[in-house]
C-alpha cells in the first residue's frame, strides 16, 4: 500500500499542472471536504553529493506547494507538489484521498494512468532523441599493414 501511495503521490507531484487540471475537470468529480491545512507555497532545499558519492551539499531551492484535507468519510489526503499552483496541490490531495476510498478505480483509470502515460511518453521522447545523437566511432587505420 505504501509503495502504491508513494507512486501516485510522486506522479501527482511531478505532473504538469495543466495536464492534471484538464484530466480532473473532464471527470467533473464533486467531493466535499474540509481543509486540514490550506495550500501553502514554500520551498525545499535540493541536495547533491560531492563527486557523486561523497558528502552532501546544498544545490538550491525548488518551489513546492503543500496542503492536507479530509473527505466527509474521514479519509485524509496530503499533497506536496512541484511549483506554486494551489489548485494543483488541492486536486493532488483530493486524488490522494480518493485513491484510498472506493473511488480509487475511477481516479486511477481517469487520472493516474493517463498521467503515467504522459510521463512515460515524455521520457521515451527524450531517450529516443538522445539516442539519435549517440556518436558512432570508426577508426581510421594509418600506415601500411602486412
Amino acid at each position: 500500500m505504501i509503495e502504491k501511495r508513494k507512486f501516485w503521490m510522486s506522479l501527482l507531484a511531478t505532473s504538469n499542472q495543466s495536464d492534471l487540471l484538464n484530466l480532473w475537470e473532464q471527470k467533473k468529480i464533486r467531493v466535499n471536504y474540509i481543509w486540514l491545512r490550506t495550500p501553502e507555497i514554500g520551498s525545499i532545499m535540493a541536495q547533491g553529493r560531492m563527486g557523486v558519492t561523497g558528502d552532501k551539499f546544498n544545490i538550491g531551492e525548488v518551489t513546492i506547494t503543500r496542503c492536507s484535507l479530509k473527505l466527509n468519510c474521514g479519509t485524509i489526503g496530503h499533497s506536496y507538489v512541484q511549483g506554486r499552483s494551489k489548485k494543483k496541490a488541492e486536486i493532488s490531495a483530493l486524488c490522494d484521498a480518493l485513491m484510498q476510498t472506493k473511488m480509487s478505480k475511477e481516479i486511477n483509470k481517469n487520472i493516474i494512468i493517463p498521467l503515467e502515460k504522459i510521463k512515460k511518453d515524455n521520457k521515451r521522447k527524450i531517450l529516443s532523441k538522445a539516442e539519435a545523437t549517440k556518436v558512432d566511432f570508426f577508426t581510421l587505420v594509418r600506415g601500411e599493414s602486412d
Partner: peptide, 19 residues
Amino acid sequence: LTRFSYSKPVNTANMTCLR
C-alpha cells in the same frame, strides 16, 4: 518562501540524460 525541508541527495546515476 517558507522552507519546508531538505531533499534527499539527488541520485545523478539515475538521471534521464539529454546529453
